[in-house]
Every structure is written in structure tokens, then in C-alpha cells.
Design a protein around this nucleic acid. Structure first.
Length: 496
RNA sequence: GGGUCGCUAGCUCAGCUGGUAGAGCAGUUCGCUUUUAACGAAUUGGUCACAGGUUCGAAUCCUGUGCGACCCA
């Protein structure tokens, strides 16, 4: 059977294994302790601008680089290779004049994908390309499998995600997204720390899922013989810390929601949540805006960005109420209708939006908002005055107890942040939990449970506070102009 | 769950109204001492996703299944 596969995949692997065996026999397979003196990018940055002559006069000798062979051009007794390290690419010139004849012969059998080290001088070719002239070369790691196609890279989107390393080694563009992701997270962290927030870590495994309206993943602790839930949000633990006396806390970490996969949803996703005691609602809106602007700057954007074909101006955030937006985008509704359950139900029918009988005014209104308004909020917009009914952890507005002091930020038609004045009245909170428990009993499997310990904490007294959650993955999508969440998560969840 | 598109060499892709499988890259061999997706010559490599059906004949047409992508709910 293997006879019929000569030249096929099996024979490619066989051929490379044969080469590896030769290395093993000479005891030079998988070399360790090789530390190059330079990175490709450093060399380009420090010497790329010099002319061929200037570089020759400088006589930069005895430097070394190491990386994966991504291109190889053999011309008989002299060759060029392009190697790629963590910082970028650099070319090397390998001539029989400068290295051992036997070594040169071996080099010719090295493959694309092999990781090598090169020591030599820096020079520029006649086309002014910065190049390392090799005086010694060494094969550090033999690659047994072929790299992705060298011109077009990986086209199979599933392999791109499942074998992300292949994507990263062949696509500098993909790599750049994840470098930017790191810069964005780092910028967020700096913004928080500079403003006096304390970074904390709270449990990922909860006995009662809470802090958001979503389905949890269920797991089991064997020794305790107890069901546990992967957290859907860190909120309730962070607020316990406010009770404890930390005035400003934040956490950047994973939460988990047991929902479908889409270009906008991954079951595990990263959120920034921060809570500030004694902060004001409007001040927090401004701070949220500042975090996003700084993060955008950190990846080299100016205030005008493009996301998914939309032009977005990050220098211009506006604030509008939910009711105003619903009326603006639904000409058949007037302000009075928004308080009338029958009117909202009949309107829902007219726009073919299904609703449940258990839903009150607030829930129906929110659904209408999500269906008719959200996608149109392209420019940065803080939406305020959410119904209390759909905001079980938010403080009621002083003037209008049916709305919450809450905002959500939309950019590019997508929800980026959600914040509100925190509900610190334990009795009100207990009532809201009861409503959630009732909703759960009525079949809403996204409703929260009753968290008695959290009520106890509130009874000890939580200072007035404002809290915000920011979807980090979506923020990265926006700031790197990606339309799928899978392109900003290194190892996204896939079907099967 | 519904719809649309896709699945052909290790990789990237052609393959017309049905006539028995193609290119580039990678691999192998040879040549080539400043190349730039290096080049030139030769060469290897296929259960055309799978299963049925139509047909003298199917990668191609039909039906079903699987896997994937996107859109909608």
C-alpha cells in the first residue's frame, strides 16, 4: 500500500524522518542551548537604513540569528534563505566559500519549516536587502511536516483555528492581531491601575451562577460531591470586595456561557469588569470612553477606524436613552406606547417578533430595542435608562423607579460595554432575586439563582458604587477590524 | 432548526453542455556563487468527502449522508 503513496504525504514524512535519522546518528538532532545574539526586527531597525557601503564600513561581525526557514533559494554553490523568528523575517546568504563543504551539502537537504541558527556578518546585497552572511550554520530542530503553502498560506479555515500554530507561522497578519490583542489588554490594565484600581482574581467555579443573565456550564467537584458552575460573570464576587473595603477593583479574565457559537460568540470569552465605590454614573461613562480610546491608541489607530465595512469615529461618543432610540427607529410607536404592555405586544406581533406571556413591559421593550435599534448604532453610543425588569443587579433611578441607572455602549452595531450604579439595598436585591427564581421556575433557564450569601454581604453594607463590564474580545475585534471573534481568540471553540 | 455555498494530489486551486485527472507550490534527481514567490530540466504523487441512482460511460447530472463556512431564526 505504501508503494502506491510514493510522493504522497506518507512519503514526505518518510523522507524527512530519514533526514532526522541521519541527524540522530550524528547525535545532532534537536540541539539545545542555542541563544542567538539578535532578533530579525532588531537588525532591520538598527541597520536597515544604512547603505551597502556604510554597513560594510561598520563591519558588523559575529552576530547570530535563529528561526524557521520560510523561503529557500539554492543556486548551486551559494544559497539564500529567509528565516522567521518571533520578531520578523531576515535573509541569510550561505556560500560554499564561507562554510565547510560537507555542511553546505547537508544544508541543501534542509527543508522549509526547519529551525536553524546562523552566525556571521551583516551586509547588504546588491539590491540593498539586509542579509546575514553565514560563517556557520546549524540545524536546531528538524521539522517533520510540510509548512502551509508558501504563497497563499492556509486557506482551510478549520485548520487555521484547530492548528493555530500553522496559521501563526505562515501568516504575519494573523500574528499581528494577537500582538495587538496583548497591547489592548495591557493598555486596559494600565488605564485601570493608573486610576487607582486594584487588580483581583475571583473564583471561576461558582456554587450559584449569577452576575449575568445566561446559561452556565455545569461541572462537578468529586471530593465535595457537589455541582459547580463555571462563572457567567465575576460581578457578585467583585462587589463582595467592595463590601470588604476595596474601593476600586477590577478583573480581566474569562467567563463562560453555555450558548451557541457564532462569529460574535465564543463559549469562553474575556471580560473586563471594574467596580468603583463612590463613583458617579456620568464619570464612569467618561472613564469607559477613555479606556477604549487609550486601547485604540495603543495599537496605533487614530480616532477614525473601520470595522466590518463601517467607518467609526472614536472621537465622538454620544448618549441617548433607550426609549428615545426605540421611538426614533420605530415610527409607529410613541412615548406612551412604551409603557403599555398591550400596545408593545401588538407591535411585537406586527414586526414578527415572538414574545412570551411572562414578559413584562421592560422585557418586551428591550427585545424591540435589540431587534430594531442595536444594529443601527454604528457610531459610539451610550444607551441609558434601561428597564429595571431586565437589570436585576442595577440600582433604581431616584426619579423613575421603573428604570435603572444603567448604560450599555454600542459601537459598530455591537454591544461593547454594560455598566450601572450597583444595587446595594439588600431587601430590593432579595426581591429581584426572587423574581429571577420565579422566572427560572417559569422556564427561563437564563435567570439567576438566589444567592443568599450575596444578600448577607449586602446586609453588611456595600458603599454606593458604579460597575462596568467590557467585552474584551469584541473590543479587540473592533480595534483590529476583524468580523469574527474566532480571529481574535487563539484557540476558539469549534464544532465537534 | 431553515437557507446558501463548499469538499479534487501533502498545500493552494483549475477541471465547460457527461468521454476515463490537471497546474503551481512542497518532495525527489540534475544544473546553477548576490537570489527576491529565484530560475531551468526531469520526476513522484489521486478511493475527485461518503453511499446510492441515471448512463455504454460520472469529479461533472439526480437523491441521501457526513464535515465545514456564511446568512436567518
Amino acid at each position: 500500500m505504501s508503494d502506491s503513496n510514493i510522493g504522497g504525504e506518507a512519503s514526505i514524512l518518510e523522507e524527512r524522518r530519514r533526514k532526522l535519522e541521519e541527524l540522530r546518528e550524528q547525535n545532532i538532532a534537536y540541539v539545545n542551548n542555542y541563544t542567538p545574539t539578535n532578533k530579525a526586527k532588531e537588525l532591520h531597525d538598527s541597520h536597515g537604513q544604512l547603505s551597502k557601503e556604510e554597513l560594510e564600513n561598520k563591519k558588523i561581525t559575529n552576530l547570530s540569528v535563529a528561526g524557521r526557514i520560510v523561503l529557500k533559494r539554492v543556486m548551486g554553490n551559494a544559497s539564500f534563505v529567509t528565516i522567521r523568528d518571533g520578531s520578523g523575517d531576515i535573509q541569510a546568504y550561505i556560500s560554499k566559500n564561507n562554510i565547510d563543504t560537507e555542511l553546505y551539502k547537508n544544508f541543501k537537504s534542509w527543508d522549509l519549516g526547519d529551525i536553524i541558527g546562523i552566525t556571521g556578518n551583516l551586509f547588504k546585497t546588491k539590491t540593498e536587502e539586509l542579509t546575514v552572511e553565514a560563517h556557520s550554520i546549524i540545524l536546531l530542530t528538524k521539522s517533520l511536516r510540510p509548512m502551509p503553502e508558501k504563497h497563499k498560506g492556509l486557506a482551510d479555515i478549520e485548520i487555521k483555528y484547530r492548528q493555530r500554530y500553522l496559521d501563526l507561522m505562515s501568516s504575519p497578519e494573523s500574528k499581528e492581531i494577537f500582538i495587538k490583542r496583548s497591547k489592548i489588554v495591557s493598555s486596559i490594565r494600565s488605564s485601570m491601575l493608573e486610576d487607582g484600581f486594584l487588580e483581583v482574581e475571583t473564583p471561576m467555579m461558582h456554587s450559584i451562577p449569577g452576575g449575568a443573565v445566561a446559561k452556565p456550564f455545569i461541572t462537578k467537584h468529586n471530593a465535595l460531591d457537589r455541582e459547580l458552575f463555571l462563572r457567567i460573570a465575576p460581578e457578585l464576587h467583585l462587589k463582595r470586595l467592595l463590601v470588604g473595603g476595596f474601593d476600586k477593583v477590577f478583573e480581566i479574565n474569562r467567563s463562560f456561557r453555555n450558548e451557541g457559537l457564532s462569529t460574535r460568540h465564543n463559549p469562553e470569552f474575556t471580560m473586563l469588569e471594574f467596580y468603583a465605590a463612590f463613583a458617579t454614573f456620568n464619570g464612569t461613562i467618561d472613564f469607559t470612553e477613555k479606556i477604549i480610546k487609550s486601547a485604540s491608541k495603543a495599537v496605533g489607530n487614530n480616532s477614525k477606524i473601520e470595522w466590518d465595512g463601517d467607518k467609526i469615529d472614536l472621537s465622538n461618543f454620544s448618549t441617548k436613552t433607550l426609549n428615545d432610540l426605540v421611538i426614533e427607529h420605530n415610527s409607529d410607536l410613541c412615548a406612551d406606547d412604551l409603557m403599555n404592555l398591550d400596545k408593545l405586544r401588538s407591535y411585537s406581533k406586527s414586526i414578527k417578533m415572538p414574545y412570551k406571556d411572562s414578559w413584562g413591559v421592560g422585557k418586551v421593550l428591550l427585545e424591540i430595542f435589540e431587534k430594531s435599534v442595536e444594529a443601527n448604532l454604528i457610531q459610539p453610543t451610550f444607551v441609558t435608562e434601561y428597564p429595571v425588569e431586565v437589570s436585576p443587579l442595577s440600582r433604581r433611578n431616584n426619579e423613575n423607579p421603573s428604570i435603572a441607572d444603567r448604560f450599555e455602549l454600542f459601537i459598530g452595531g455591537k454591544e461593547i460595554a454594560n455598566g450601572f450604579c450597583e444595587l446595594n439595598d439588600p431587601d430590593d436585591q432579595a426581591e429581584r432575586f426572587k423574581e429571577q427564581v420565579k422566572a427560572k421556575a417559569d422556564g427561563d433557564d437564563e435567570a439567576m439563582g438566589y444567592d443568599e450569601d450575596y444578600i448577607t454581604a449586602l446586609e453588611h453594607g456595600m458603599p454606593p458604587a458604579v460597575g462596568v463590564g467590557v467585552g474584551v474580545d469584541r473590543l479587540v475585534m473592533m480595534l483590529t477590524n476583524q468580523s469574527s471573534i474566532r480571529d481574535v481568540i487563539l484557540f476558539p471553540q469549534l464544532k465537534s
